[in-house]
Structures are given as C-alpha cells and as structure tokens.
C-alpha cells in the first residue's frame, strides 16, 4: 500500500511529508521498491530495463549510465551481459541484482525491500546486507520485509512483527528478544504467532515417511 501498488480502504499515510493519497507521484519519486516477485520486463536487456526505469524518474541516459555502471561493478555483473542478453535469460540471482539496481538508481530516501535476498548468491548476499546497513547509516529509511529472521535480527534497528494484520511487537530486536527471554528473534516470532508446536509436529510428520 505504501508503494502505491494496492489501494487503501481507509486511513492516511505520509512519506517524506507527502500524502500517499493526494500526492502519489511525489511519494513515488521518493521511494524505491524491490518486490519479492523480482518481476522485470523479460524481453528487454538488463541495460534497456535500467535505462527505462531511469527515464521514468527523469534521469537522462547520460546520467543514468555511470550510475548503472557503479551498481554493475558492485554486483559483479558483466556489462556485456547487461547490454546484450534479454532479462528472460538471466539467472534468478542476476535478475534480482537488476531489480535492486532499478530500486536504488534514483537514490531514493526511502527503500522498501520484500525478501530481497531470494536468489542472491552467498557473496552477493553479504555485500547487499552491508550495503543496506551503510545506506541506513547515511540516513535512508530502509523497510525490510522478510521471513529470514536471523538476517532481520542482524541488519535491522527496529523490528515489527505483524500477524493476521495486527502489530504484535515493535522495538529494537535485542530489546524484544531480551524482554521475552526468547534467545533469538526466530524463537520470539514462533512464540508470538503460535508456532511453538512446529518442531514436534515436524517430527511427527517426518515419521510418516518411515517405511
């Protein structure tokens, strides 16, 4: 909803002081979004896709190209691949790198990540986690939505656990874990969302596979 992709039924929201309902374009100019689907126009090359996205933010190709090259270098992608290969032929990880680049290309002050690590290789994941921590230190607001809770625990300053549309807890991860004595954020999550029985159920279920 905050990205303008689904219509709100009620309430208000502002991003960088702009109202989501009355100033949607101003809001969209200030946000970047990495959807979990990793959707791209598969019939464009990576470079065409990024230049198209840059143009939608009013960035001329002369300015967009050096920025794209910076990201390509960071993500260890080849410019040849980016320029000549259609996105449909990219691996999931490469595609994800293009989607992340497309979200950060216009240097937005607010960035939404939805399961951004999916498909990234181990090195790219490490680099990406370092990148978002650096961006947060520079003053950007990073909204990171994920079910990989050990990563969330490491990279986020503030965690909100939402279950069935209700906010259950909100605070610094170490404070939340300490307050409940859960040990880890993952354990806290399962405690709060009624998943305590999961391990026992998994054990019982696994037994059904025995010959």
């Amino acid at each position: 909803m905050l990205t303008g992709m689904t219509a709100p039924t009620s309430g208000t929201a502002t991003i960088c002081g702009f109202d989501l309902l009355t100033q949607p374009l101003e809001v969209k100019r200030r946000i970047g979004f990495v959807p979990d689907s990793g959707a791209v126009f598969e019939s464009l090359t990576g470079l065409e896709h990024l230049e198209m996205v840059a143009a939608l933010y009013g960035i001329p190709v002369e300015l967009a190209r050096p920025r794209i090259e910076q990201f390509i270098s960071f993500f260890d992608l080849s410019m040849d691949t980016l320029a000549y290969k259609m996105l449909g032929a990219y691996s999931k990880g490469m595609r994800r790198k293009v989607v992340i680049t497309a979200a950060l290309l216009h240097n937005p002050p607010v960035v939404f990540f939805d399961e951004p690590l999916e498909g990234l290789d181990a090195n790219a994941s490490v680099g990406f986690k370092a990148l978002i921590q650096s961006l947060a230190r520079e003053g950007k607001a990073i909204v990171y939505s994920s079910h990989i809770l050990d990563v969330v625990e490491r990279v986020c300053d503030r965690v909100i656990i939402i279950d069935k549309g209700k906010s259950l807890v909100d605070g610094r991860p170490e404070d939340l874990v300490a307050a409940r004595g859960s040990g880890t954020l993952e354990r806290l999550f399962t405690e709060l969302t009624g998943g305590q029985e999961l391990e026992r159920r998994a054990e019982t279920f696994a037994k059904t596979f025995l010959p």
């Binding site: 598969e42 019939s43 001329p60 290969k85 032929a89």
Partner: peptide, 30 residues
C-alpha cells in the same frame, strides 16, 4: 541534458514488449 519524457519512455517500452513478446525466449537483441 534532455530530460526524458515518461510518456515517450512508456510508449517505447510497450512497443518493444509487443515486438519481442513478454518473455522473448530464445531472442537476442540482434
């Protein structure tokens, strides 16, 4: 620099997607 027009960018995008198809499997830029 000449600021790109979003309208023109979108028209070019949709025409390219129409010409190449949604997935463009097996196609190269050439």
């Amino acid at each position: 620099y000449k600021i790109p027009s979003p309208d023109k960018t979108l028209r070019r995008l949709f025409l390219t997607v129409f010409l190449r198809g949604q997935s463009a499997r097996g196609l190269t830029k050439e």
